[in-house]
Write a protein that binds this DNA or RNA. Structure first.
Length: 361
DNA sequence: AAGACGTGGTG
DNA sequence: TCACCAAGTCT
């Protein structure tokens, strides 16, 4: 028997589902997969242009597997969590090499691939292969926490177990993928974190938080700590018309992306001293710090930075990639070809505006 | 198991 | 300016 919750949700979804490019009939595993990875911690509106560009350049599994990592990162630039792009690329190569280009069907198989966790595996398996599994993401957590007025933190192990237990029994065997997407659409459009639109919600009559007036208290979350703020420096080291870029190591923050070398200011250091020290440590050489390029601010997920960038000249020996994966001298006009994070892209943009190419002017 | 991991939108 | 949040995964 189908739960009333599922019936109402699906009826609403049939009328109100958002038209999204990866929602096709029948759904295509590759396109559903790419969309789900892009959508990890990222809103639909942000994903749309990236998805379109991706599908134009990498229309299928084989094309993606054959691409270079640099091109993959360049298309991903701006989406964040760059490990997702690298994992997607690696998984494509695994499927082509080890499975002859055939997609898994079960969620448990999908989850063995890099970049695919419990949520994404369940989403793909239910949407593209009809597996009856709950796809528990942030939206679904919030919707279920309200429907059942759950007072456990939804991001705790106990809370998650409870949500799975509560939610799984409602997944209908005939339309598991639509059910999951209906829950997510509801969370994204009506059952929003602030000021949920209960008046027009198709399942308001079944909602315990609505009945008790506790919508704004759900979901309960554990508190995060304060985020640190760092002062960092970056060097634009010139050699003729070229500047020096360093490629960050594959693991960790902005893995595989390119940057202007530099680093944190330590207590007691001037900006210039910090930059000279960082260049000595990272490149094994010495610079003269000149005019300021600009000051840039940025908030990462777990800290904030204020970045001071300076024009610099090399006075020591040839730079060595002591901490970077690679170093390259790059003409300013070619900086767009190197994938970068937000801050370094801002520096690059500033340089390109200051020294426009002849053809662009 | 808690923290690392991007970026943009919102109140 | 700031805290919180968003279709999570990895270690």
């Amino acid at each position: 028997m189908v739960s009333e919750l599922a019936q109402r949700l699906l009826a609403w979804f049939d009328q109100n589902a958002r038209a999204l490019p990866w929602r096709e009939s029948p759904p295509h595993p590759y396109r559903v997969w790419v969309s789900e990875v892009m959508l990890q911690q990222t809103q639909v509106e942000t994903v749309l242009p990236y998805y379109q560009r991706w599908m134009t350049r990498f229309p299928d599994l084989e094309t993606l597997a054959a691409a270079t990592e640099q091109e993959v990162l360049r298309l991903w630039e701006g989406l964040g969590y760059y490990q997702r792009a690298r994992a997607l690329h690696r998984a494509a190569q695994i499927l082509v090499r080890e499975r002859d280009g055939c997609f898994p069907q079960r969620a448990t198989e999908w989850q063995t691939l890099p970049g695919i966790g419990p949520y994404t595996a369940a989403a793909i398996a239910s949407i593209a292969f009809g597996e009856v599994v709950l796809a528990l993401d942030g939206n679904v957590r919030r919707v279920l926490a309200r429907l059942f007025d759950l007072d456990l933190p939804v991001d705790s192990p106990a809370g998650e177990r409870e949500l799975r237990r509560i939610g799984q029994v409602h997944v209908p065997i005939d339309r598991p993928g639509d059910f999951n997407q209906a829950l997510m659409d509801l969370g994204a459009t009506l059952c929003r974190p602030q000021t949920p639109q209960c008046e027009v919600c198709p399942v308001a009559g079944l909602c315990l938080a609505r009945a008790r007036g506790t919508q704004s208290l759900r979901p309960v979350r554990r508190r995060g700590g304060a985020v640190p703020h760092y002062i960092v420096t970056a060097a634009v080291i010139w050699r003729g018309e070229q500047v020096l870029l360093a490629q960050r190591p594959p693991q960790g923050l902005l893995g595989g992306l390119w940057e202007f070398p530099g680093g944190k200011q330590e207590p007691g250091e001037s900006l210039e001293e910090a930059l000279q020290r960082e260049i000595r440590e990272e490149l094994g050489t010495t610079i003269v710090v000149g005019e300021k390029v600009g000051v840039f601010r940025h908030a990462y997920s777990h800290f904030r930075v204020t970045l001071h960038a300076f024009h610099c000249c090399l006075v020591g020996g040839e730079p060595q990639p002591l901490e970077a994966t690679a170093l390259e001298w790059v003409p300013v006009t070619r900086l767009t070809h190197y994938p970068m994070g937000k801050l370094d892209r801002q520096i690059a943009q500033t340089l390109m505006q200051a020294r426009p190419s002849a053809s662009a002017g």
